[in-house]
């Protein structure tokens, strides 16, 4: 058995990384792969997240490029969703949550005291695991964001925004005749696309997606994936997914999280054909546990 020939020397160290507490100050947990990109949209530097005394994210440094789809994968509880929610400060709603390090959006620290979360969340939109349209009409669902942000002054402008958002979400043709019907009456996949339309209606730069397809059937999933593929020409998309196939299909870069550490990040093709870290390899080949 010549196991050692398989991995470079750093591959023998991840065992140290599993105990987060012991590794906080150590450099053992260097992320494998290149975490920086040219001209990034967001930079995360040494991000730590604590829930009360429990550390959920440990020293994560990662750049998120422009117009790229970056997928976050990893086993349950690895911190990928927590990290995603740091990017638009959705963790602020949790009292016990504490964040250190810095996250920059276009060079501006979003955890700066002067940063208001309301415009931030308009810039960094979010799509959730379960489709969660408001219990209002389809039109109102999409119009709500532009309305509260005061993006339009006239009804006709709002109509234009609603139509173009639904169009970009690939839903317009399916719902144009029933805009006044409740959004909750749509199918699961349509609801999720409605949620995406709602998000892009406020004109974000970054769209965060937290397992957007986990509640959908394969056809609906395929439509969302196709949509992601189209949207990434205009938006930066960060997607958390449990499906490695999905990550492989939709993303250009993939980041693997394990117990709060960013273990490896790299081109999606490289991660799925030749991961460099043993933990990544074990996870994506189904050897975990």
């Amino acid at each position: 058995m010549q196991t050692n020939t398989l991995y470079n020397s750093s591959a023998t160290q991840p065992d140290n990384c599993i105990n987060i507490q012991s590794s906080i100050a150590s450099d053992d947990c260097h992320t494998v792969g290149n975490t920086s990109v040219k001209n990034p949209r967001m930079n995360c530097r040494n991000v730590d997240v604590f829930y009360a005394d429990k550390q959920a994210i440990n020293q994560v440094t990662l750049d998120i490029g422009r117009n790229e789809v970056i997928a976050m994968i990893g086993p349950s509880g690895c911190g990928k969703s927590t990290f995603l929610r740091c990017l638009n400060r959705m963790n602020d709603t949790i009292d016990s949550c504490r964040i250190s390090g810095e996250i920059l959006l276009d060079g501006q620290n979003i955890y700066d005291k002067r940063q208001d979360v309301v415009p931030l969340r308009a810039q960094v939109g979010m799509v959730f695991q379960k489709p969660n349209p408001f219990p209002k009409s389809i039109y109102e669902n999409v119009a709500y964001g532009p309305r509260i942000h005061g993006l339009t002054s006239t009804k006709s402008d709002l109509d234009i925004i609603v139509e173009s958002s639904l169009n970009r979400a690939g839903l317009w043709d399916e719902v144009k005749d029933r805009l006044n019907q409740p959004g909750t009456g749509l199918s699961g996949g349509q609801q999720q696309r409605l949620c995406i339309a709602r998000t892009i209606a406020v004109g974000p730069e970054v769209i965060l997606m937290d397992e957007p397809c986990s509640a959908l059937d394969p056809i609906a999933t395929a439509k969302i994936e196709e949509l992601i593929d189209e949207l990434h020409e205009e938006y930066t998309i960060v997607i958390v997914t449990h499906s490695m196939q999905q990550a492989a299909r939709v993303s250009q870069r993939t980041a693997y999280f394990h117990l709060g550490n960013l273990i490896e990040v790299g081109e999606t093709n490289q991660i799925f054909s030749n991961p460099r870290h043993k933990l990544t390899e074990d996870y994506i080949t189904g050897r975990f546990g």
């Binding site: 398989l6 490695m244 492989a248 799925f272 054909s273 030749n274 390899e281 994506i284 080949t285 189904g286």
Partner: peptide
Amino acid sequence: KRQPMAKDLR
């Protein structure tokens, strides 16, 4: 059945 990845795929 398995959709092999990484070294399994290789």
